[in-house]
Amino acid sequence: MDAITFFIQAMNGIQYGLLLFLVATGLTLIFGIMGVINIAHGSFYMVGAYLAWSLMGWFGNFWVGLFAGVLVALFLGLALEWLFIRFLYDRDHLQQVLVTYGLILIFSELRSILWGDDVHSVPIPELLSGSIQLTENLAYPIYRLWLSGVCIVIAILMYVGIQHTRLGMMIRAGESDRDMTKALGINIGLVYRFVFALGVSLAAFSGMISAPIASVFPGMGNQVLIVSFVVVVIGGLGSIKGAMVAALMVGLIDTFGKVLNVNILGINILPEMAGMSIFALMAIILMFRPQGIFGKGH
């Protein structure tokens, strides 16, 4: 592999990792702060992608469609928290998994009724449709660079929001001691509603911005959910910093696993077993740190 190809694959890996971070961070926030295992999280990613397809087509403008889609996702998150999730805070994880699995089925049916079962594609907006020429024969798409930049900006905003604002203090306090937070006059129910809606919006937003570089198809939510869980487990349940590190690791390993050739004792390890690479990474990390890289353990 020459240096330029390596560079391009590294950029692809980082971009995929940053996108995974956006999805996984919502999952880890909802678990870390509210204690809820939300296996419907992948459905929000799928809903985002379908919203992008229909709203961007409807408005005829990528940016307006994106804005409208985020608003819809935000209201969807607020409504779901009020209708279902708020009843799960004091329930055990099995009940949380059952209710959120029910949500997966509901969203799958709704998607089929509203949008059908076909595969769709979303065009890249004209403003971001070009490429940067790296060599005579190799170019890197501007859209992918923009996508990575957006993910980095959101990660920084989340860090600042959680570490340096009053709302962030409330969120961290709720994570530490729910009853004491309430006893200080903070409406923790409202804080949780906001966190859940934020998680839903992040997942949907990821689905929206990934739609132009990947197809929009019915099973896309389940695919991303599994990889996001791998990210959350590697990073440590509830850790946003862990989600970032793990997402980049998973993104790079998954990308390079598909392009590298590794042959040991005559057996083609890569790329034949590339699909297993992130699970092998998870197994190795859990052997040494069962609580994940930045997990607190119990």
Binding site: M169, R172, A173, E175, S176, D177, D179, M180, T181, A183
Partner: peptide, 10 residues
């Protein structure tokens, strides 16, 4: 409260 209820991550 009895256990003081300090937010340890703050």
């Amino acid at each position: 409260p009895e256990g003081r209820g300090i937010f340890k991550n703050l």
